[in-house]
Amino acid sequence: MRILKGSKLTMKFGGLKAVNSVDFHLDNGEILSLIGPNGAGKTTLFNLLTGIYTPTEGNIYMDEKDITGSKPYSIASMGITRTFQNIRLFSDMSVEDNIMMGLHSRIGAPFLGSIIPTPSSIKANRFAKERLDWVLNYLGLYSLRKEKAKNLPYGLQRRLEIGRAIAPEPEVLLLDEPAAGMNPQETNELMGLIHDLRNKGITILLIEHDMKLVMGISDRVMVLNYGEKIADGKPEEVKQNPEVIKAYLG
């Protein structure tokens, strides 16, 4: 089943077509990797899917519903969450507050409930606490929960960003170069984590340059070059594709 689909997606910045008529789909429960040289339009595609940009042409569908032009916050509420290439945590806030922010799409922050306890805010707080504890334990961040995000080492910051993204139990998780700057040990742990998240029912779209990781966990790989899709298939097929070898794998 197609959970997310983009048809003829085009994004122009002035005269530059960062993404050029790309057809894209994501099936329920798969891990799809998006690879390609720098500047190929991978992150732009992410930004289109998460509503940061509105496509110049083309449409985006979630569960067959047209969501083109939706704002980032409403896309998040639909169950599509993401991490960023250069980590974007709320760096002056604690680890637990960062994860609580991730829960915003589920519990909101009503004005009245913030000043006096209302039945719905009490219920929301209980739910949030449960999710928070689960995420903290799941990612092994429990002992660091009071620490400011900016004080965490790099690898844990990446982990926390994933925690923020999975807190609301999303349907689709978009990871933008999650292994960037990680050592092989950390990358291995990350692979295990991504696998486990998929087994928990989260569909994953991944941008990554680490080919070991990409080929190791992807069900499908899609290759972009100069904004155009040049390959889309099983990792083994894509690895053999002459055009991909020429453009990217070398």
């Binding site: 993401r82 709320f90 006096i116």
Partner: peptide, 26 residues
């Protein structure tokens, strides 16, 4: 009360990184 509640944290988050807060559904 407001500032130490979740609403206050949401406002603080917006001040720190608006794009990231939108991505969390704010």
């Amino acid at each position: 009360r407001l500032q130490s509640s979740r609403l206050g944290k949401v406002m603080r988050a917006i001040g720190q990184d608006e794009i990231a807060s939108e991505a969390t559904g704010v």
